[in-house]
């Protein structure tokens, strides 16, 4: 996949349809699965879509031959995450849907996504959000780098691509801010520091209606059902119990002494 200076980019962005974080979220009593009603595009994926569009636009956008494909895996409703990506400006969508996928953990999910990415083929950049807002494990981006044999540039707060197709990026590591460098092709995940995602405008919403969403099944990808879903996952949930929600304690209004009341509270709780 060697690239000449300034040539058009083929970008894949992964998106996930997740329960809205603004509402109470539930596990279903049967099988400890997440109740996926009232789902939306994961807000952390909006940063990935924005980064994909910005990279494509830096090379002249769709008119310049750049291509941004949004890929999701999930039940029927998950296509909505792809639709929103198309409204924001992605050129095409792919939805992997199969009943056997239910219960897939990060390892099984990354297996399916990596297989689909190879099946579609030819990407210069694979982009993801920093985590999904439902499972919040952040495992899938690193596992995709491993499975696809791509350089991993994850949790980036800034990304740049030069004319020689070298990515320069910044991330906040445990030891400090790291500057990273790698030639394309790469796997990138971005944080909410990386950009300000655009809203779909009226034109974008109209244009999205004409864009194509391809559906792929496991059979089309050549994946055995036994390697995905609950059966194929390397982890299993044993049990789940709802937490007592935290309740409000004492509330006081400051009339000049609240700082002292705060210290009394700490002393009563044996914190000081």
């Amino acid at each position: 996949m060697s690239q000449k200076t300034g040539t058009p980019l083929n970008i894949l962005v992964l998106v996930k349809h997740v329960p809205d974080v603004q509402f109470e979220r539930h596990l279903l009593p049967n099988g400890h699965r997440l109740d996926r009603q009232d789902s939306v595009l994961s807000e952390l994926d909006e940063y990935a879509i924005e980064a994909a569009l910005a990279l494509a636009e830096s090379r002249g956008g769709e008119k310049g031959g750049n291509h941004v494909t949004a890929l999701t895996m999930g039940p029927a409703g998950a296509a909505n995450a792809v639709k929103k990506s198309l409204q924001m400006g992605a050129s095409a969508g792919v939805h992997i849907s199969d009943a056997a996928l239910e219960g897939s953990d990060a390892g099984a999910t990354s297996l399916v996504l990596a297989t689909a990415i190879k099946h579609l083929g030819g990407f210069d950049v694979v982009l993801t959000g920093m985590a999904s807002t439902d499972a919040e494990t952040s495992l899938v981006p690193a596992q995709l780098a491993e499975r696809l044999g791509l350089a991993q540039l994850t949790n980036l707060s800034a990304v740049e691509l030069d004319d020689a197709n070298i990515i320069t990026a910044t991330r906040m590591g445990e030891d400090g801010a790291q500057t990273l460098s790698a030639p394309l092709p790469v796997l990138i995940s971005v944080t909410d520091q990386a950009n300000e995602p655009r809203y779909p405008n009226f034109r974008g919403i109209l244009a999205a209606k004409k864009k194509k969403i391809t559906t792929l099944s496991l059979a089309e990808l050549g994946i055995e059902a036994s390697t995905v879903g609950t059966a194929g996952s390397g982890t299993r949930v044993l049990d789940a119990a709802p937490h007592e929600p935290r309740s409000a304690g004492e509330i006081i209004t400051d009339s000049g002494q609240a700082g002292l009341a705060l210290v009394d509270f700490l002393a009563d709780a044996k914190l000081i």
Binding site: R246, I251, I252, T253, G259, A261, L262, F265
Partner: peptide
């Protein structure tokens, strides 16, 4: 305040220095 064990309705600019 819905999850605070102690909630203080007030200006942090006076409450924090007094507590410190």
């Amino acid at each position: 305040f819905e999850i605070a064990d102690l909630g203080i309705i007030g200006d942090l600019a006076s409450v924090l220095p007094q507590a410190a």
